[in-house]
Amino acid sequence: MTMDTVFLLASLGLLVSTALALIRVVGGPTVLDRIVGVNVVGAQTTVLLVLIGFLFGNISMFVDIAIAYAMLNFILAIGVTKFFLRRKSARGGSEET
């Protein structure tokens, strides 16, 4: 069993848990549940990108992509939250999503 097999198995495990988190994204009762799901998927994708870098033998390139992805994931979470808050306060903030 070489290290490549280990990385491949770990990537497959990560993909399975990404699929589990995607269930919450698709079927979450509220918008904020979906944001949480997207955050989890983002964290898993960051690790997955570094693993893919090892599998392709080009680690220094994929680390850059992973850093950029982590940054944009953070900005996305804050942006969507602010957008949600603004929509809520514009409508009076009492209705159920």
Binding site: S60, M61, D64, I65, A68, M71, L72, I75, I78, G79, K82
Partner: peptide, 29 residues
């Protein structure tokens, strides 16, 4: 990302997006 565009992934467009996202983040917070 802008400077190392011709050696690693990225380039002008992607680096510009990250630079813009930094200031958008400031505007959000």
């Amino acid at each position: 990302v802008v400077v190392h565009g011709h050696y690693s992934p990225g380039g002008g467009f992607q680096g510009g997006v990250i630079l813009g996202a930094a200031i958008i983040l400031m505007a959000l917070v």
